[in-house]
């Protein structure tokens, strides 16, 4: 469940990384902005138009996707493009700086308190194949799957996708072949940000709350998931996200039983990281990653 949200956010990391080799640390903040914009949109449009719940949610999602795409494009243009030739770690600093900036701007814009996300979807638990699930959960899983299928189609089946893959392999060669590299990079950011907006709306809707600081932890987990799956690799991000979600809930629910009560759920993150370390020690390029030579 949480895994599919991680997967969506991880996709944004992995796409940008695949093309630019840049860890976009501010990506989690885009998710946060997506959630907050959706809440505002619902708050403004709900009373004004009187749309029914699910439709209103869809409209809010649209607004938030647009807002996030704008933010993503802005990030790329203002913060990252000037640094494309700079050392990789310098771009990391910019990303951290932008993350601080966006977070504090959001704090000023939306206030410091937690905002509650209205329940617009039926949330009655039902029994499906022996497990208790809610409508929201089903919708999230379905939407995530849909988003991934569309994305795979985009990357593997379209001209645009081919240009993206070419740019990822070598920007210089791609530009010789007539690919407008700048445009491809912007498109990558747009797609990643749209997915982030989707994830933001989902996570806020699912847990019923949003806050200007929510992006930090989510971004970190998603980055971990992307690395776990093999960073730069799109199916890897999905697998990594889902795997991390499963590992986390296993850790929280069963670590006590697994260790005979010696370690409790306070070690759930240790468990998650230990699995990560083990995976990477045996597969140094992640679950689905290919070997890449790179430098810090």
């Amino acid at each position: 469940m949480l895994g599919s949200i991680y997967a969506l956010v991880a996709l944004g990391y992995t796409m940008v990384y695949g093309i630019l080799g840049l860890i976009n640390f501010a990506h989690g903040e885009v998710v946060m902005v997506g959630a907050l914009v959706a809440i505002t949109a619902i708050g403004v449009l709900g009373p004004a138009t009187g749309l029914p719940g699910p439709l209103l949610l869809l409209v809010a999602l649209g607004v938030s996707v647009l807002a996030c795409m704008l933010l993503g494009a802005l990030l790329e243009r203002v913060a990252y493009r000037p640094l494309r030739e700079a050392p990789r770690l310098t771009a990391l600093i910019t990303a951290i700086g932008m993350s601080i900036v966006i977070q504090n701007l959001a704090m000023l814009a939306w206030g410091r308190q937690y905002l509650s996300f209205p329940a617009l979807l039926p949330n009655e638990p039902m029994i499906l194949l022996g497990a208790t699930v809610t409508g929201t959960q089903l919708i999230i899983v379905a939407l995530t799957a849909l988003a991934m299928v569309v994305l795979m189609g985009l990357v593997n089946r379209t001209r645009l996708g081919r240009a993206m893959r070419a740019t990822a392999q070598s920007p210089a060669l791609a530009s010789l072949m007539g690919v407008n590299v700048d445009r491809i990079v912007v498109v990558t950011f747009l797609v990643g940000s749209a997915l982030a907006a989707l994830a933001g709306v989902m996570v806020a809707g699912y847990y019923g709350q949003a806050h200007y600081h929510m992006g930090f932890m989510l971004g970190l987990k998603a980055f971990t998931a992307a690395v776990l799956g093999g960073i730069g690799n799109i199916p890897g991000a999905m697998v990594g996200g889902l795997a991390l979600g499963v590992i986390e809930s296993l850790g929280a629910g069963y670590i006590g039983a697994l260790t005979g009560g010696f370690l409790g759920s306070h070690y759930q993150d240790v468990f998650a990281f230990a699995v990560l370390v083990l995976v990477l020690v045996f597969r140094p390029s992640g679950l689905l990653g290919e070997r890449v030579a790179d430098r810090a």
Binding site: M1, E248, S249, G251, A252, G253, Y254, G256, G264, S265
Partner: peptide
């Protein structure tokens, strides 16, 4: 059971 001050999902610990 234990969680963190940044968590939002408690289903596992609640189930156990």
């Amino acid at each position: 059971e234990y969680t963190t001050d940044k968590a939002t999902d408690f289903r596992s610990i609640l189930t156990s």
